[in-house]
Nucleic acid binder design. Structure first.
Lengths: 242, 242
DNA sequence: CTCTTCCTATGTCCTAGTTTAATGCCTGCT
DNA sequence: AGCAGGCATTAAACTAGGACATAGGAAGAG
């Protein structure tokens, strides 16, 4: 049975600051359905122009870009609540690919119909702007981390960001969260080699700042980790009421 | 005398794909005025929440983030036609700073009033989405360059991108464009040291792919430069008519 | 149970890129 | 003219991080 947008726990979370019921009812109308995918399923691919947009309901994935030389840049990690495929709806094509790393449940919207939402409820242009600003903020931070920080600082940054984000959408868990990524994924996200990623994780472990093992991340002292990561503004951005 | 939006050559350029006169007339109403600034003037700063938004009419600048350890990441270069300060309008505060590197002429809009534009002309949510997607595309590409490419590839990438962008808004110039940046700015954009930036520029010069000197960039063979830069999609995104 | 495959772990060596520092070249100031 | 400050350039010494090699554990296949 399909979840109604108005009841969707994701959109009620602090992160999205309780979207107006007006918007939620409207989204409901254009919801095409739900979709479950296996781990490893490609959801969107660079250069494509899929007619559908998704929001992640559960499970995780990653966004990445491939280069001709074979290397891969992981752009960001995908968590429940994330919106996928907006690019394809606006530009001719996606500029990165998205892939599930666990089984995922997705909410599917028809792109063309969704545009009419933004036409019909003008205020919703604000939701779009917020989404954009959030994305820009994150990418700017990632760029700064990869461009200016040491391996240890970068790794701390990534783990701290992932940890906070997961705790915001996954209610349970103490200082331990489940993380369906390989060290290679982390390496590709941070611009490090797999080997060096491993060594850096070892360093964090022996300093007791973060432990990554068996698809589980444990952060006993988030504040210290964020300090090491040179994170100036640790709180996640939440959508204001405008 | 203040330029009317409807006559603004920037918004008529291919890059922005001739915005509708409807939008332009509307923007005109909320234009507060124009502003000229000296080289070196800070326009927006990280953490601030200025009540005004700008579009660059002429001149250039750069967006950057500072870290506690003193290093600086240049996020992007600002050229005529760019929109500045959207973040502050949506989130509580700017996550990067913007500074003029030449004398600049700016068009000033009141943030609150501009929002009402998006409320009143619903379709304009699309402009916003396009702006966002363009930004996301660029930042993703920058991240991929800094994360995965060699110094020579990164430098080629930056110069090729800058060159194309400038030729799109600056009508004149053959294979030569004016570039008011220091090598340190390039270094901070690409995550390289100043010295290595200089060496890399020398390499490009001796290969006759690009010459940077005295605030002028010359690219005799853009296609070869873009090939070296591993750029898969050289054309700049232009706003579709939706 | 063994073979295989995928991932994590660690050590050694080496290169791309950093740091520091010295030199020279403009441009503006007095 | 003479000096000062900002920027480009080059060289030399150093180091963070990469490449390669190798090994170990977990999980599935037969």
């Amino acid at each position: 049975m399909s979840v109604k947008c108005i009841n969707c726990p994701l959109r009620k979370s602090d992160l999205f600051h309780k979207m107006s019921s007006e918007t939620l009812e409207f989204m409901q109308r254009f919801k095409v359905g739900e979709m479950e995918v296996e781990p490893g399923t490609p959801l969107l691919s660079e250069g494509s122009n899929a007619p559908q947009l998704y929001t992640a309901l559960s499970g995780m994935g990653l966004r990445y870009k491939l280069l001709e030389n074979g290397s891969r840049q992981v752009i960001s990690f995908v968590f429940p609540g994330d919106f996928l495929g907006l690019q394809a709806g606006v530009m001719k094509e996606m500029t990165h690919s998205v892939e599930a790393t666990t089984a995922m449940k997705l909410c599917v919207f028809d792109r063309k119909e969704l545009w009419s939402l933004f036409r019909t409820i003008p205020d919703r242009g604000f939701d779009l702007a917020w989404l954009a600003a959030t994305e820009e903020r994150f990418l700017g931070e990632a760029l700064t981390s990869v461009g200016q920080k040491s391996a240890l600082e970068r790794m701390s940054w990534a783990l701290a960001r992932i940890f906070r984000r997961l705790k915001a959408t996954t209610p349970a868990a103490g200082d331990l969260v489940r993380l369906p990524y390989r060290q290679q994924d982390l390496a590709d996200a941070l611009g490090l080699s797999l080997v060096h990623t491993n060594k850096t994780l070892a360093k964090l472990r022996e300093r007791q700042l973060a432990t990554w093992s068996d698809g589980k991340l444990s952060v006993p002292n988030l504040a210290r980790l964020e300090e090491l990561a040179l994170i100036e503004n640790p709180e996640l951005p939440t959508r204001p009421l405008m």
